[in-house]
Design a protein around this nucleic acid. Sequence first.
DNA 1: GCCAACGTTGGC
DNA 2: GCCAACGTTGGC
Length: 154
Amino acid sequence: MNHWLLKSEPGTFSIDDLAARPRKTTSWDGVRNFQVRNMLRDAVKKGDQAFFYHSSCAVPGIVGIVTVAREAYPDATAFDPKDAHYDAASTPENPRWYAIDVKLIARFDRVVTLDELREHASTTLSDLLILRRGNRLSVTPVAKREWDFILSLA
DNA sequence: GCCAACGTTGGC
DNA sequence: GCCAACGTTGGC
């Protein structure tokens, strides 16, 4: 099983929004970055687990855990001209973008803040991509060692 | 609102 | 294939 970190802006879709969904499951769609597309399509597998990270908010940080309930499938929002993520270059016959389904496993009692993660940037979390300057990918891999360490902080 | 970082686009 | 312009992300 691989581990990941998924970013979401809580003003758009928060972990509480996920908790309120039927079966606590949502389609993780709207990804329009090729690197992230490739990861979703080729590397993210059913049963993988991911941290749910709140970005662009008062206290950025990790707020819970989700699991991959469904592997990559064509992102239907790309086919809808009225959708904000519409892409005329993506068709059902030849889809360019992919989505996955994620299901909430746990909402942390507190936020493991970005500041807190940074405290370990020179040691255990030195390779964590979210701590790299300029990292903007909405999906990033997390090593098992990093995963276990962050879980111990929560 | 500012700014750094970086991906994408398009002219050449 | 290069690179400037532009758009987006995200912390602050």
